[in-house]
Amino acid sequence: MACLLLGIWIPGIQAATDFSKLRLLAEQRYGDRAKNTIIELEALLNTLRDAPDQEKLEKINLFVNDKIRRFDDDINIWGQSDYWATPLESLGREAGDCEDYSIAKYVFLRELGIPNEKLRLTYVRAKIGGPNSRISQAHMILSYYPTPNAEPLILDNLVISIRPASRRPDLVPIFSFNSEGLWTGTSTTPSSDSLSHLSRWRNVLARMQADGIE
């Protein structure tokens, strides 16, 4: 609401997601299963509206990790390296890369009214097999900061349970971001033909909006 008053528009700040559109698109593109997933999502979001943050985090983390069943590389799912999928695409295909999980969680939590400044999409270096492993991989997780200076909670698809950062010694944070300052003031919703000029992040936000998630 504060953002609206400031004239700043951020996706998901209001419960403005158009579920009927989302359902229709899911059915058209991916069939009945996807449609049912969206119906489940809607039900879940509705039950969580007034729940404490901790419950929201756990339920959404579980839902996304459960519904995006297959964790795979973008090249196998989308036929191109590093494709940022919208939640509809990820849920529809029931498959996704690490950032697809994180994006979906971020969007749904924002939908549930968790403010932007508490959420960060974070690039991390993940040591495969434990903190002392020599094999590391580029990974993305969603961090939740209960207060600005608190230790974040990590929502990951590799480790199902939500843990504080200190309990994830296998992850080394590199950079984090959210949608703050992105969709501002006069720079209105980009039209679809200009999507190609946008960064991946802005691009996926724009496509999401076209799907009905606002």
């Binding site: 950079f175 959210n178 703050e180």
Partner: peptide, 11 residues
């Protein structure tokens, strides 16, 4: 342009 600066896990 707005971006977040991290210090390890903390903001």
């Amino acid at each position: 342009g707005v971006a977040q600066v991290q210090n390890g896990w903390s903001q």
